[in-house]
Nucleic acid binder design. Structure first.
Length: 255
DNA sequence: ATGGTAGCGGGGCTA
């Protein structure tokens, strides 16, 4: 089974990319973030034309998450059921047989002095708590987590110490949440390569110069991590016309 | 140090 995560930065604007990439990708389940469409405007027929069904929740202009799959999930959860906000346009989970896929678009946080940064930390705690309920089951937490976990995960880390995706406090929080039970699948297979999933539009030739961030992740519970046979980032779609600023990450599982 | 681009929606916010 092949699973991918991709922050599309508007699903409707990225249909040409998906139409070019998905058919030959071999992807069975695609977790998308920043779909940027309210549910009535979700391009379901275009997705179905590609051979996928979808579960999704969005809003006008911002956020939005979806799970595309060749076969429909057995169960779907929108948002967190404990506390407020529910964040149902940033969190969607779906079960495929014995596998849970938790897809999140973590708040970016704006600035470390901004209330959104506090919300970001709260979101990460709630997502980890959700995942932890499935510690003894197969669960894959993936998505745009807006955290570069280590100095290997961003170009020029010295200049990023106060950035909301790299500040030490956030990295410590994230590491503490993950360490007890989650495996970083990309690092399991590529422990020390400078691999990035996000290349800012504003940086000239960012992809060619490999100036980016690894902020999209696939994290697996103990029963699932050993079943992952490969994990990689496909930078090709980032180089195509009208790309997202993120590029897909994929993983193969022998379930 | 600053600003750079893109998407949505039709101005300014978000990233």
């Amino acid at each position: 089974m092949r699973i991918a995560t991709f922050n599309v930065n508007s699903l409707r604007s990225r249909l040409p990319i998906l139409e070019r990439w998905l058919p030959s990708s071999g992807v069975d389940v695609l977790a998308a973030q920043e779909t940027k469409a309210q549910d009535a405007d979700f391009p379901l027929s275009a997705v179905e034309a590609l051979g996928y069904t979808a579960v999704f929740r969005g809003e006008k202009s911002y956020n939005g998450v979806a799970i595309l799959s060749k076969t429909a999930p057995d169960e779907v959860i929108h948002g967190f059921d404990e506390g407020e906000p529910v964040w149902d346009t940033r969190m969607i989970a779906a079960r495929f047989g014995g596998l849970w896929v938790l897809n999140t678009y973590v708040p970016q946080g704006k600035e470390i002095t901004h209330p959104d940064y506090q919300a970001k930390k709260e979101f990460l705690k709630r997502a980890a708590a959700f995942a932890e309920r499935f510690t003894n089951e197969k669960l894959l937490w993936l998505g745009d987590l807006n955290v570069a976990p280590t100095e290997l995960d961003v170009t020029n880390p010295k200049n990023k110490q106060d950035h909301v995706c790299f500040v030490k406090e956030l990295r410590d929080l994230f590491a503490g949440l993950c360490a007890p039970f989650l495996t970083d699948l990309l690092r399991q297979h590529h422990p020390d390569e400078e691999l990035y999933s996000f290349f800012d539009y504003r940086v000239k030739n960012a992809l060619a110069r490999n100036i980016g961030w690894r902020i999209d992740h696939m994290l697996a519970t103990p029963p699932l991590a050993p079943l992952c046979t490969a994990c990689w980032i496909d930078t090709e779609p980032r180089g195509w016309e009208k790309p997202s600023d993120h590029t897909p990450m994929l993983a193969d599982f022998e379930l």
